[in-house]
Amino acid sequence: MITLAHAVFSSFVVVGSLGAGAIFGSGGGAPLTFVVSGLVILASGVVVFGRGTRTTTGTRAESGTRAESETGVTTNTMRRRPALLLPFVIVGLVGALGFAAENAHQSWGAIYLVDELKASPALAAIAPATFAACAAITRFVVGFSARVPAVALLVGGAATAVVGTLIVAAAENVGVALVGLALAAVGTSVLFPTLLSQAVRGIDDDIRGSTTSIIATTAYIGFLLGPVFVGLLSSAVGLRGSMIGVTVLVAAFGMLSPLVLRYRALRESDRPQPVSSVSSRCAP
């Protein structure tokens, strides 16, 4: 479900990228692009807020009482035990590396085509659209396919993203750059969804939401800082050189992600046993 949700996100990035390119191509410019984007965001916010208030009002008290009575471990317990949150924060920090690489390509792909390969702004919109389309397709395939070993997805995805990013860095024309972006998208698209789904696997229902939020919120630091990282690095070594920096982020993710998942699993074994589980063992 996590991978499929990310696939839907990437699908709409394609719509947004091509829509922005169409506005620029028709002479609308940046102001009109932001006006349209703002209206879409406003409409989405209204829908999400409306659905959220309807679904949570009637179930909040019931779910809280049930979770406490069945497991004896509540979200409030997690909040009072910072040590229990540490493994999830660490997972989120590693996830930030994957998100940083993903959004670096997503945010700088069009600029790379314009500045390094002299593409027109309308043509450059193909870069983020290509990246998002390949990411969406990969996530749909992985989400609907039989289970693939998590380590294979994490390490294989990181390796694919490294190869794709190096191709982008060496590209001398738009076609080659798009091939590199496609490979980078295939590789990075599976990184964070796989890491997140594995990190929350086996977590009790009453705290799964809070732990998911901790990991995702921490990881989104990378989503915010990835484009900044490329911008700062490009001021020193240029855009092509900054792509090498992106490969370092992805390689670090590939090496660290299996380790932090193992660390989280070991720390999970130290958590207090749920009351229901202890009772079942003591029952005659």
Rank of each mutant, 00 (worst) to 15 (best):
M1G: 11
L4E: 03
A5K: 05
S10G: 12
F12W: 06
V14L: 01
S17L: 01
I23M: 00
G27P: 00
G29S: 05
G29R: 07
S37F: 12
S37Q: 00
L39W: 03
I41L: 14
A43Y: 08
G45M: 11
V46I: 15
V46R: 12
V46F: 15
V47T: 15
R54V: 11
T55A: 15
T65H: 13
G72D: 00
R79N: 08
A83G: 15
L84T: 10
L85R: 05
L86T: 14
I90E: 14
V91I: 10
G92Q: 08
L97W: 09
L97S: 05
G98S: 07
F99G: 05
E102D: 11
N103F: 14
H105L: 11
W108Y: 12
G109T: 08
E116W: 04
S120N: 01
P121G: 02
P121A: 09
A122T: 02
A122D: 03
I126M: 14
A127V: 03
T130L: 10
A136R: 06
V141C: 06
A150K: 05
V151H: 10
L153K: 03
A158M: 03
V162Y: 02
I167T: 07
A169V: 04
A169S: 00
A171H: 04
G175N: 10
G180I: 01
G180F: 06
A184W: 02
V186W: 00
V190D: 09
V190E: 05
T194C: 09
T194P: 06
T194W: 12
L195V: 11
L196C: 03
R201D: 15
D205Q: 12
D206R: 06
R208L: 09
T212I: 01
A216M: 07
I221L: 10
L224C: 09
V228W: 13
F229A: 12
A236Q: 14
A236E: 15
A236G: 14
R240Y: 05
I244Y: 12
T247C: 11
L256P: 06
L256T: 12
P258G: 08
R262S: 11
Y263L: 14
L266I: 12
L266D: 14
R267F: 07
E268V: 13
D270G: 10
P272M: 03
P272E: 02
S276W: 05
V278G: 14
V278A: 15
S279I: 15
